[in-house]
Amino acid sequence: MQSSRTLASRSAKSWSSMLPLIRPPISIEIDSRREGRPTSLKPENTELLFFGFFDPRLVVELLSQLYPSSSYFITGGQGDNFKSMLCRLYRQRYGLCYYPARAEWVDHISGACHLLLEHNLLEICRRRYSGGDLMVFPIGAIALDVIALIPKMKASMESDGDFSRLELTTKNYLFAPFSFLSTAERGHSYARSTTASFIQTILFTKGNHFIPPWDTEDKVEDFFHRAFGHHTQAGHTDSYRYDQESSRLDISNLDASYICSGPFRLMLTTCLEKHLYLDKDGILYVFWDFTHEIGSSLDLYRGHFLWDPSGDLSECTLFEMFLILEL
């Protein structure tokens, strides 16, 4: 295995590392623990830390659309099966088929790993995709709500092009008794902001392709502020502060030898969400996926409707597929 050849994984310590004031610049361990997540990313209420997903069969079907380049195999009659399954689920309350993800499931259901990664990526990209601390992202449930909502929004805009009507349609649908938001409102305090962020992401990236007036970010921002009562994007003040901070700092200090000449040390990690995370012990985690071209393993997410929104529109992503199906 590759890991046995990296310095970070050498188990034998050199004599110099035993001296009290000489420390190796790179940690001899490889970090692959997701439990040791940065404290800043930990939720205040650990009870919220679980994933919701549907029937495992549905997860596989859903993921095959979410990740077109992965090797999910679905037998014949894919569209009908998928559609009938969705229709059946719509008639039920989500609570009946919504599970907390357990560790053993992660081992047994490959799809759960993707969901975990997706969740972790969302945490990294919280600034863009969330309105605050994002703890729960039951992507399957929300995706189905959003997928069903989009054609209604589209129809609403086509009929009179009035944004107030669009707001009403959105509210009425998302808070209807069968939606995830209404069934999971009590247990998922972040469900509302998560759903808003999710829809907003789609509208930011794909919105103007199907709703013509939806052509500026400001309009989307205003809409979500009115419909959900909060801003899901970083405000101007934040971005101004961000620019101020970044202009003050010198990125040339981000040099491995310079970092290792001081109190901080590098450690290889295989957890993407820990890339460039500095823990309280002064260990700076650097992600490497053991590929020649770093990050190549993320090609799995090409064409993903959320993570590759700038992808080629001719690709049949989940989002476009449902527009075609006109669910």
Partner: peptide, 10 residues
Amino acid sequence: PRIIYILQSM
């Protein structure tokens, strides 16, 4: 944000 945090911590 992480780069800024690292540089600030440094």
